[in-house]
Simulated scan of single mutants.
Amino acid sequence: MVKEVEGTFPVGDVSLYTKSYLPDGPLKAKMIMIHGFSDHMGRYYDFFPTLARAGIAVHGLDQRGWGRSVQKSSQRGLTGPTSQVISDIAAFIKSHLPSDVPVFVLGHSMGGGQVLTLASSPEYDGLIKQVRGWILESPFIGFTAEEEPGWLTVFSGRLAGRLMPHFHLYRPIAPEKISRDPEVVKSIKADKLMHDTGTLEGLAGLLDRTGALSKGEARLSGNVHSLVLMHGNADRVCSFDKSKAWFERQTIEDGEFRVFDGFYHQLHADPGKETFYEGVRDWILERSSGKGEAAAAEAGPDVKVPAESPAVAEADGSVPGSKL
């Protein structure tokens, strides 16, 4: 039995929506969830319950400007500058510390880039030391070729952003590029909380963070000892190649790059998603019991996951019972 708890997290001048998934049995670990662009805590299917059933409590929030943290249309995409974004995330992680069990942080897509920016910020080194492990799901380290904005668009946007930082810009991503599951695509189109709208200030900050990561300007803290990066090699939104290039530049004591063969952007919502759920669960539990380094050495730094798990995938590649 998994207990779901909704709440709010006051930070600065806002109160952000939170949701937790709590185990019924003994608590073995905590995972802090940082979602992606236009996403929210209500879109992760059975991922969080799977972790909670294994004794891993999940705590997440709808970030400033997204999901149920938006109370009026003017707040859509109103994230503030990067300093504000990272400060919000750091404050939320800190609210779950100190902890009697290991704490892990997972960032998906835009959230993955934010998490890496935090883990590369010297001013947060004290907080970084208290995180047992870092999990990246399809992190935004670079665009795919089909999503890369032209230089003129970027230049014009930055110029306008200096004059009108809170100007809203509709920046949709085609749902068909996010998942191969037609039911997921349909649900994205129907989800009114996914507004696909950023501010010029927020989008410029996102591009700056991504640029710093892809160019190697943001250096990962030496206090990051365990990290796993999971990415589908058919991702049509965030570049698989740039994620792999970033990982190969790092020196991480317990680091692993996992390839999800044939998967699109949302590993948690693509056919065969159970392999992702189980991979995250087992990675956390191994490190919560102190077996992580041995397990990582045995698996190797680059692990490939098949496109579909035959036990859960239908003949047409869809997942039975896939729904929100």
Rank of each mutant, 00 (worst) to 15 (best):
K3E: 13
P306V: 09
S99V: 10
E4Q: 13
A296R: 01
R162A: 06
R236S: 06
S179G: 07
L200C: 08
E248P: 10
L51H: 03
R132D: 00
L285R: 05
E6F: 10
G67D: 02
M1P: 14
D39Q: 10
R43A: 10
N223I: 00
S15M: 09
P301S: 11
P172D: 11
P271Q: 04
P306D: 07
G107I: 05
R43S: 06
F143S: 06
V58E: 06
A204W: 01
E314P: 02
F140G: 01
L106P: 02
V131D: 00
E137G: 11
Q114L: 10
L16Y: 05
Y264D: 05
A204H: 02
S73A: 15
M31H: 03
I252K: 01
L116D: 04
A234G: 03
I141Q: 00
R43V: 01
L229C: 14
S87K: 09
I173P: 03
E148G: 04
P149W: 14
H225S: 08
A299R: 15
V105H: 00
L22M: 13
D46W: 07
T153E: 14
E253W: 06
G133P: 00
A119Y: 03
R249T: 14
L136S: 10
W66K: 03
V58R: 00
K94H: 13
S239F: 03
K189D: 09
D100Y: 08
V5I: 15
G36W: 00
G317R: 04
M164V: 12
D46T: 14
G216K: 06
P182K: 05
K3L: 15
P182G: 06
F9M: 06
N233H: 10
